[in-house]
């Protein structure tokens, strides 16, 4: 009964990512999109929290939104997978439900 969670807010401005991680059960996945992609970056104040979320969960970041913001894939936390829109669609169909943390 795995859920795909989406987060579209910068973790430096809003608490959506934090709320999402607290509610994301083991086996679920988190996809960072729009301003949420800033949560996927290495060496930030939230990197450790996101790395911690990888324990028992998958974390993805939407490449098109990452690249639009001037961030390259090598800036992304190890273990966080960069995906395109086609893979976003696959994540939706592979999970039982999608929960947006708006």
């Amino acid at each position: 009964m795995a859920t795909l969670h989406t987060v579209n807010k910068s973790p430096f401005e809003k608490r959506s990512l934090d709320c999402c991680i607290r509610h994301a059960n083991p086996g679920s996945a988190i996809l960072l999109i729009e301003d949420g992609v800033y949560g996927a970056l290495k060496d930030t104040a939230v990197s450790d929290k996101v790395s911690g979320a990888l324990d028992g969960r998958k974390v993805y970041v939407l490449g098109p939104d990452l690249h639009a913001r001037g961030m390259s894939d090598d800036r992304v936390i190890d273990g966080v997978e960069v995906v395109d829109y086609a893979a976003f669609v696959d994540l939706v169909t592979e999970h039982d439900r999608v929960q947006a943390w708006l």
Binding site: Y85, F88, V89, T93
Partner: peptide
């Protein structure tokens, strides 16, 4: 069979663009 809900207008917020790109990708698949 998928459904999409769009809660923001275009231009003010990226949500509409994201929904559009997602919808296109889903149809292409």
């Amino acid at each position: 069979k998928l459904a999409v809900l769009v809660n923001e207008g275009p231009y003010q917020h990226q949500a509409a663009d994201s929904a559009l790109q997602f919808t296109k990708a889903a149809l292409e698949k």
